[in-house]
Write a protein that binds this DNA or RNA. Structure first.
Lengths: 239, 239
DNA sequence: GAGTGGTCTAGACCACAAT
DNA sequence: TTGTGGTCTAGACCACTCC
């Protein structure tokens, strides 16, 4: 069968994927069930085995199926209902909304690490770190306080940057490739300083995103991002 | 070249992927750059074009490359530094920590939808919905208030369930396959009812996860999950 | 028209699992 | 040993972009 014969139909591998997905949705195939072999599906659809292989390989990448060499292909266990939240570069996010991003630099210094920070950075006791505090504005309204500590070994020129033109995030992404990160999201009452910078009351809760990033086997940066709870939310969707 | 010749080496398509990724990491290939054609890479690695095709197709699925038919293959724009938070079934999460999950049912009813709810569910004005309010405990400490509205058409037997044995999440996952969801995370002060159920003060901020789930082309469920801010955080890591 | 990626074929050899 | 998936080949025709 040529592509012309198929006309407006989706590619064969896609139709095989749709067929399998349909069998799962309809209940004909249940979690853990063995599905037909590649050769059986190839015969059923009258196509080459490679075409079936691609369909099943992609469904495996999508975690719909599980394949075991020598054994067979199974319907994967249903995943938990999960929510994924993506937190991006704040300046980019604001610009993507068509709004104006501005930032003000409150602190840019080098400072001896506290005990907690030396542990977070996995550095020796008297380590010197770079520290910046920046407030980000969306259309002149403060939307984020970025309190960041940076490992001088990873970004030695950090203090020389013009953070009105480039965000620390953008600078670090360009300087130190991101290899891994840990993060948490909490709801906290703001400190006096943070409340003042965000122009909110002390009793207004904040969303606090904390993130530690790794680069080249070292801790590159430890940052806390404070958002006013009544002006900001993390949101998204998935399917 | 046979698999035996290659011995312990990774498959060819993987080595081509690694090569491209290395060129990007090293800076030899920059964002937007055109990469060699399939035929050029096939000649360079002395393999069939299909093998190169698989490597490039997978890198495209991973959003490392962008392919344009008739034009060429390009290095995709660098992704933002992103933080992904996964929120799972609360009962499962607690058990995974080795702790004891318990829940108490505060409300289980059918009720006429408010105007806001009819819009969220995309239903007509006088629609009847199921409503449940459940408090989840971790080692006897309240950790989540689950306030959930459910579409009766999707889960007609919702009111008959024993939610001390199965969470609404688990029941809905088994009854109505999850196709998509929207969600948000906010920091809010609790309502009086929520504060009482969570045994916290009115001034203690809460993390509020809101989630709307789709199943079979309909809105299955609209839920708000309240967590005490000082006892709970969303956390995770990625690399 | 030349060159690109998109898809597909009909074989092949291999590693691994079940028996 | 048989059957499974994992990978690869050396072609092919097509749709599309760019010149």
């Amino acid at each position: 069968m040529t592509a012309q014969d198929r006309q407006e139909l989706p590619p064969i591998f896609q139709r095989i994927k749709d067929y399998i997905l349909g069998e799962i949705r309809s209940g004909n195939l249940l979690e853990g069930d063995l599905i037909p072999t590649e050769l059986a599906l190839a015969a059923q659809f009258n196509v080459a085995r490679m075409t079936v292989n691609r369909a099943l390989r992609e469904l495996t990448a999508e975690q719909i199926l599980v394949r075991v060499q020598g054994s067979g292909t199974y319907v994967a266990q249903q995943k938990y209902q999960a929510t994924l939240v993506t937190v991006k570069n704040i300046a980019e996010e604001i610009r993507n909304r068509g709004h104006i991003h501005k930032s003000t630099l409150h602190t840019l210094e080098q400072k001896k690490a506290t005990l907690l920070l030396t542990k977070q950075f996995e550095l020796h006791n008297d380590a010197i770190l770079f520290h910046s505090v920046i407030v980000h504005f969306e259309n002149e309204i403060p939307i984020q306080v970025e309190d960041r500590w940076v490992n001088p070994n990873i970004a030695p020129d950090y203090l020389l940057q013009d953070f009105s033109k480039i965000t620390p995030n953008e600078y670090l992404m360009a300087t130190a490739p991101l290899h891994a990160a840990e993060y948490s999201i909490e709801a906290c009452v703001p400190t006096r300083k943070v409340a003042k910078m965000l122009a909110i009351e002390l009793h207004n809760p904040c969303l606090v995103l904390k993130r530690r990033t790794h680069s080249n086997g070292h801790i590159a940066s430890v940052a806390a991002f404070w958002y006013p709870g009544h002006r900001y939310r993390f949101a998204g969707s998935f399917s």
